[in-house]
């Protein structure tokens, strides 16, 4: 009897420790990530919001709370202009990466049925990333410049007799550069979703009498929407936070929110920089939230 009771106790105890151990393990597994995010993401964002209300004078910044920086930001044509330019360039680049990226993804993900070949093609898209970001951006200068490759070729072909000056140091050059750099982030997710479409589904649509454009609109496009949304989130987040491409390719004519932040930080105007940072963060959050409403990614992926 005693024996039985003892063994029963031990069993109960083991069961108890194992259920107690479970949350312990979960805690330890989550701790590094949570601590990291708290220290280096949540805390800085809160700090940024806080600093945006500090008092900024020409030479110093004091933790006296004021709305002055916010009022200055929203009453200045420069800052509002930068916000508007950021939104405009973001929309144009989003549209152009989609326009260039979707057909490329269609080719890689759907028309190339050989898995090895489509992987090779995707890797080819990634090859530019083997060089530094700055080199990729600066490489556009000898292409787009007044005496750059494009102008030279067009002139020697006799298409134009004056070089097209708008190609470099303009909004156009920023858009061209960003489209090239961020296009692959659109191609990847879309090609992945297209590759998952059962070829028989497309054959079924053909057999039911639908032509190519109909199938593209009614079958392929809806089935690839999750890829479009993921690609759009990648491109949006990166373009909205951009400053290097516009600095290198616009000759400081195009000022994005990112450029404002860089300049303000450079001249130690922390409060202004923080205001611009908060505005940019809110804008990104809103864009991502809106994109996630388009498709329920948890259901689709």
């Amino acid at each position: 009897m005693t024996m039985a009771a003892t063994s029963h106790d031990t069993a109960a105890e083991t069961a108890e420790t194992s259920t107690r151990k479970q949350p312990d393990r979960t805690f330890w597994l989550l701790a590094p990530g949570v601590i990291w995010m708290l220290l280096f993401l949540v805390a800085p964002i809160l700090m940024m919001v806080y600093v945006s209300f500090w008092t900024q004078t020409t030479f110093k910044i004091e933790p006296t709370l004021t709305l002055k920086s916010w009022v200055t930001f929203f009453s200045s044509d420069t800052y509002l202009g930068a916000l508007w330019t950021t939104i405009r360039i973001w929309l144009v680049v989003l549209a152009s990466t989609l326009l260039v990226g979707y057909p490329a993804a269609l080719f890689v993900g759907l028309f190339v049925r050989n898995k090895t070949l489509s992987t090779v093609l995707l890797v080819l898209c990634v090859i530019p990333f083997w060089t530094s970001f700055l080199i990729r951006v600066l490489a556009w200068r000898p292409m787009l410049g007044k005496e750059g490759a494009i102008n030279m070729i067009l002139m020697s072909l006799g298409v134009i007799d004056q070089p097209i000056e708008v190609l470099l140091f303009s909004e156009l050059s920023v858009i061209i550069g960003m489209t090239q750099i961020y296009c692959v982030f659109m191609v990847g997710p879309i090609a992945f979703m297209l590759g998952r479409i059962d070829p028989a589904v497309i054959e079924a649509a053909q057999d039911l009498g639908a032509g190519f454009w109909r199938i593209l609109r009614t079958i392929i496009l809806p089935l690839s929407m999750p890829g479009v949304v993921v690609g759009a989130i990648f491109v949006s987040v990166m373009v909205l936070g951009e400053f290097a491409t516009s600095a290198a390719l616009s000759g400081r004519k195009v000022n994005l929110l990112g450029n404002i932040i860089v300049t303000q930080v450079g001249s130690l105007k922390w409060a202004f920089a923080a205001v611009a940072g908060v505005v940019l963060t809110i804008l990104m959050g809103a864009v991502v939230a809106a994109l996630l409403r388009v498709v329920d990614l948890r259901k689709e992926l």
């Binding site: 059962d198 028989a200 589904v201 079924a204 649509a205 057999d207 039911l208 079958i219 809806p222 089935l223």
Partner: peptide, 12 residues
């Protein structure tokens, strides 16, 4: 008309 082995219905 063609009826596919795995039906190939439009999933969306």
């Amino acid at each position: 008309g063609f009826v596919f082995q795995n039906f190939a219905l439009f999933p969306h």
